[in-house]
Design a protein around this nucleic acid. Structure first.
Lengths: 136, 136
DNA sequence: ACTTACATTATAATGATTCTAAAGTAGTGT
DNA sequence: ACACTACTTTAGAATCATTATAATGTAAGT
């Protein structure tokens, strides 16, 4: 739950101009109580409904990637033809419902500590992600 | 390390006709000491080198999907524009080298037991996969 | 206001994957 | 061996997500 001014500041502070389109997208992504999982297609549909003058698909792609690079969005590793993004950028894991293609957050505390006992010389661990596939 | 007859039997026993193309692909995939991680593109290149009369790309896709459905191949969850497959169909995890896009197996024993403390009513856990992203 | 670098846009291009429908082949029965 | 049928392969077209292009628009500093 944030307001327009907060978005404007955040964008400016990360070197992104607070354009009409970016603020519109911020509203959809971050004016929520829960975290939001989405594909570009889903985001695009929501934006179409919300406003009369729709935002170009290219801009949605650009913005989502800009937000991902600034760590305002996280991309989730799922093999699907589409990319999934998450407004929760903290270290956490996911359920993936194979029937509905829905993602559900697993808090860090929902998953026991994960010990990686193997090391690859000269490589650093960037992230450890658990994907729990479920279906009915 | 298996021979042609073994492949023929395995294919027949799962209702797949042992065609020239499928046997050729079996050789590339399973006549190895270590497990093999690949994309369709990589597999296609290897097959092109191996034999004069190349196998159609559509057949490679068909075969890989048929093998995946019969549980002779596993698809790995990575968000990439391409799909990755693994000849190791057992329950195990992966390192993904973000610099080289290379996959490395983590034996089940290389990762501590993963406890999923959250349950989703009416849903069964189909798999639990850990992806450890690394880079230099 | 003027300028400039950054953004948006419609459209085209790309690239992986899937579809199509025609030609080929394996396996069965004769 | 021969014929039949269902399954396979194939080249090429189609599809779909994503990225590139290049022209137009806009934010923000001077």
């Amino acid at each position: 739950m944030e307001n327009k001014e907060t978005f404007v500041k955040k964008l400016r502070s990360s070197g992104l101009r607070p354009t009409k389109q970016r603020l519109e997208i911020c509203k959809v992504l971050y004016e929520r109580d829960k975290t939001f999982h989405f594909t570009i297609e889903e985001l695009s549909k929501i934006l179409k409904k919300k406003s009369k003058k729709s935002i170009s698909l290219a801009t949605i792609y650009n913005t989502v990637h800009a937000f991902k690079n600034k760590n305002y969005l996280k991309e989730i590793s799922i093999n699907s033809n589409k990319s999934y993004f998450d407004t929760n950028v903290s270290n956490h894991h996911h359920f993936f419902n194979e029937s509905t293609h829905e993602l559900i957050d697993l808090k860090d505390t929902d998953v026991g500590v994960i010990k990686i006992k193997k090391k690859i010389p000269g490589k650093k661990i960037k992230s450890v992600e658990v994907l729990v596939k479920i279906s009915s």
